Simulated scan of single mutants.
Amino acid sequence: MSADQEQRTIRCLVAKVGLDGHDRGAHVISRAFRDAGFEVIYSGLHRAPEEIVQATVQEDVDVLGISILSGAHDTLVPEIIDGLEEYDAFEDTLILVGGIIPDDDEAELKELGVSEVFGPGASMEQMVEYVRENVPEKE
């Protein structure tokens, strides 16, 4: 991490996409990121992919954390990535996915551009450290 990155606050959007109504994990992650000194925006429940894209772009976040437990990750996450690419926001955003994601699907998500997938049992410290080490530099 460069000195400039240490100076600025990392901005994160924690997003719940689709009809998934389980948000306890998203709240836990949001609190851990906040406690680590990150600025955190929480999308609320039942957001459409386009709403998440718009929030990511408008809030100029460094990190997009997508929390999804519904099993629709293979449809909804690619829609978000496509939207970010349309707004030229894909390269500047660290994309993380949290939830129960099968190994084969995890590999496919990473091929699409998801930086990391965190499943059950991942530690908050591990996620915070991953963000600090991998957040894109902004000019």
Rank of each mutant, 00 (worst) to 15 (best):
G25Q: 04
V117L: 06
I52N: 03
D82Y: 08
V17I: 12
E79V: 00
M1F: 09
P120E: 12
V135E: 02
V97L: 05
G21S: 13
I95C: 03
G44T: 06
E129W: 03
K138I: 12
A55Q: 12
V40I: 10
T9L: 10
D35L: 12
E59D: 15
I66V: 14
D104C: 06
P136I: 00
D82H: 15
S123H: 08
G98H: 06
P120D: 10
I41Q: 15
M1K: 12
G83F: 07
S67K: 07
L19H: 11
T93W: 05
L84V: 02
M1H: 13
D20Y: 07
V28F: 07
E91I: 03
I41E: 15
V57C: 09
D60H: 15
M1S: 15
D103K: 14
A89F: 08
H46I: 05
D105P: 01
E125P: 01
I101A: 06
S123Q: 13
V57T: 13
G65E: 01
I41M: 13
Y42P: 00
G44H: 07
R24H: 10
V63F: 07
A89Y: 06
V131K: 05
H46L: 14
F33Q: 02
I101R: 05
F33T: 00
G121H: 09
A3M: 13
L96N: 03
V77L: 03
T56N: 07
A48D: 10
I52G: 04
M1W: 05
G37I: 06
D60T: 09
A15K: 03
S115L: 00
V61M: 08
I66E: 01
E125I: 10
E86Q: 13
K138G: 13
E129Q: 13
M1C: 10
R47L: 11
G113Q: 01
V77D: 00
V61P: 01
H22Y: 08
E86K: 15
V135T: 11
R24L: 11
D82E: 15
V63A: 04
K110V: 06
M127P: 02
E133C: 07
Q58G: 14
I100R: 13
D88A: 15
